[in-house]
Design a protein around this nucleic acid. Sequence first.
DNA 1: GATTAATAATGATTTATATCATGACCATTT
DNA 2: AAATGGTCATGATATAAATCATTATTAATC
Lengths: 236, 236
Amino acid sequence: MRFNNKINCTDCENSNCFIKKHCLDNIKQSVTIHENKFVNRYSKNQLIFMEGNFVDSINFIQSGRVKVFKKGAFGKDQIIRLISDGEILGHRGLSDAEKFSISATSITDSMICSFDKAFFFKLLKTTPELTFNLMLYFANELNHEENKLRDLSIFNVREKVAKALLIMINAYGLNKKNEINHAHELSRQDIAELVGLNSNQVTKILADLKEDNILETDNKTIKIINLNSLKEIVNI
Amino acid sequence: MRFNNKINCTDCENSNCFIKKHCLDNIKQSVTIHENKFVNRYSKNQLIFMEGNFVDSINFIQSGRVKVFKKGAFGKDQIIRLISDGEILGHRGLSDAEKFSISATSITDSMICSFDKAFFFKLLKTTPELTFNLMLYFANELNHEENKLRDLSIFNVREKVAKALLIMINAYGLNKKNEINHAHELSRQDIAELVGLNSNQVTKILADLKEDNILETDNKTIKIINLNSLKEIVNI
DNA sequence: GATTAATAATGATTTATATCATGACCATTT
DNA sequence: AAATGGTCATGATATAAATCATTATTAATC
């Protein structure tokens, strides 16, 4: 981790960033935000923060891709989110928890904007619109988590793998060749940890899906041949 | 569902209710809230709202116990929350969703306070403290959901049943005889749906736990003999 | 470019889970 | 008190999932 030239939020391209959207109404506030912003650069596969760390900041992704995960028993981790540009990171630290309940690792080289927790709280107090929209965002996230919870408790292995692929597509999209973006940055183990499986099972199901002409794999690249069939597996 | 005498929030005993805590600063507001509050009575096992219903209100439990659940494929539902006095209900409707993504049923006779969604939004806009605390609450809920997600994707059947029992205890507590409150209001199927199992599996594990002197069952009553052992199963 | 380490693919085996069938128990109704 | 329907308990069986062992492939290092 090393410091880097800071971009001013007004020049930033992440239009869905909460700060960008709700906190730049006047010049005075813009300046304060810029002064209190720390920007760090993380190279690929670097730990950003770890479960159990003291929560001292709220973060936003300026660029790059990050996986957020939780440690479980016997090294069986659970990936909670795959996120990218503009998305908020470590916001569970806004709860009464003093320590991070999650860990975060960069999947690609990433720039992370951070605010001291105390400053961010002050910002929330003085910017009701920010708080309001954050509240709505969390309500929405709760919906998603609860959907995922239901799905994972009902799905079989094949359905879980399909779900994992759709999570990846939803997070990072497909390129022009219909390949899952950054699939080669995530191992079979990562895919497994998105949906509570092991890497072996993922490999097998991917072979099955290849057999069924739903996708093609070439090393870690996953090319989607029939997205509808994939969605049908999880009943979307 | 039928209308009933309304209790004024100031006379209500639910000290952890958001309205009670954050919205009664002045008499004018108290009056407005009272005027916009609808109170409905639901008898045991009555549907309060259903997945797919148009979201028109935000609700709080004045008294009683409610289960919130989601419909899955093949009638395999997932119970999301067990809640009681003072707790907020249907708040996921605050997100951009127009329709409820969950259903809610009364476990016991219950009184539910409701506010029109539009009014509640207005209340949020004029009461930053309410919004702020709701935001913190949601951040906390997200933590819980994510913990549950990790647990359920790692636990085996025995661990899941232990988890289900602890969820019930956490929600409704134990009586003086160390029996799980309202366990007789929830079927084996309900317990199963808390953690993605079927009723058969629950029955079997309960028999095992009885064998291990961790609990005793008498019809639907579940008496906890050794709470620590139960917690150890899920590694708390 | 050869060597090594890491990850992935595949098949065989073991273990765990889900399903099915039956009988017991309890609650309700008449 | 007998009859009915519903939930629960239990064991047997079938199915699915997890683990293990081996080989193949890819990436990293020298």
